[in-house]
Nucleic acid binder design. Structure first.
Lengths: 211, 211
DNA sequence: ACCTGAACACCGTTCAAGT
DNA sequence: ACCTGAACACCGTTCAAGT
């Protein structure tokens, strides 16, 4: 698992092949199958170790909405160093022990805050889903820009060149779009993530208030 | 593109290799590179054709929230027949013409409804993101269950067997969890999707009301 | 219990050579 | 402009044989 993290952090998910991992451990790919059932199980082990890193606070019912936001940010911070590893979380429903502890503690915050059980049960999926897809897309975009530095400028140029007759609304808001990192280094990715988090939390609050 | 859809619809994204596509067209894989730059461009063509299928209504400002929900459902319905093709939408920012028309028309609904431009600009990402990740995860789960029919029951058994001392909140809501399809055929996937859609729309309405 | 080499059945993409 | 066969540099997984 340690060696696998080293590869993922350096090269991303695609770089983590059974063969490359075996090579780094000074053995052959077939030997890994004595320790994991296959690549999917290896990825689950990595994800569960990431889940172990996420600190979820004890419930403070009065500020449950902010606590949910904190949990979202904590999960994002834990996933960010590992490139597109987040993508592996989309493929399987995680059942590792650390993942279950994460879910249990998130549930504690929601239920203490008065969120009905049926809503809480659906929300414990949606929050990690938002975080995972955000980190995954951000990582792939980052890798693309690293490989192809002109990509960012090309995308903006394409959007700005769209004919305003056919795309009047898009032309009107194109100035408000800034995919991921701003040129000045302001963390636009963080702002976009917080926006998504706000939608989920405010939406849940509205549904919970209706009962 | 037609042949590619036939493969994706029958076998999913993994089945769509350049070699299999070429074989179905009675030629060699290398020949495809005279028509597309590579597999990523092929996937973009497929996704843009899906976008062409999505009907986005003209704005009715008074019911913009319901219209956003309708767009979400329409996009989901267009993606659903194509298995895990949705996963390809996570890898690249789509720039096809049909995709841009979709975005333009969604923006029209949002702006007519009074959503501030900065919020609308971020929301046009979040809505497709939710739809895509929902369809993608649902498809992978469905494929897993098809391959491994006992998976569903195993997952439920694992959750129900978790010790209530360590996981009291999870134990309390485990009855409210039903991943994807219910045994009785009720469309639980649809309900979960609508829940996510509600979070986004109600959250956006709350933010828009604040200005 | 753990490891090994070799094999099986695949990938995406490139490239010189053709029509 | 479009197509071809062959090659390059990979994959995940299995399996008989070893220690």
């Amino acid at each position: 698992v340690e060696a696998a993290f080293a590869i993922v952090d350096a090269e991303g998910l695609d770089g983590l092949s059974m063969r490359r991992l075996a090579q780094r451990l000074g053995t052959g790919a077939a030997s890994l199958y004595a320790h994991v059932s296959g690549r999917p199980e290896l990825l689950q082990l990595l994800l569960d170790r990431v889940a172990a890193e996420v600190r979820v606070p004890d419930p403070e019912p009065a500020r449950w909405q902010d606590q949910v936001r904190e949990v979202g940010h904590a999960l994002r911070d834990a996933l960010l160093p590992h490139r597109d590893l987040a993508g592996a979380a989309l493929a399987n429903i995680p059942t590792g022990d650390n993942t279950m502890v994460f879910t249990e503690r998130l549930l504690a915050i929601l239920r203490a805050g008065g969120v009905p059980d049926r809503l809480a049960a659906m929300f414990i999926d949606k929050l990690p889903q938002l975080v995972v897809v955000d980190v995954y897309e951000g990582s792939l975009f980052g890798q693309r820009v690293a490989r192809e530095p002109e990509y960012f400028a090309q995308l903006m140029a394409y959007w700005q060149a769209l004919p305003p007759e056919r795309f009047p609304n898009f032309a009107a808001i194109v100035g408000d779009i800034s995919p991921m990192e701003e040129a000045d280094g302001a963390d636009e990715g963080e702002a976009r993530f917080s926006f998504g988090l706000d939608l989920l939390v405010l939406g849940l609050a509205a549904l919970a208030a209706r009962g």
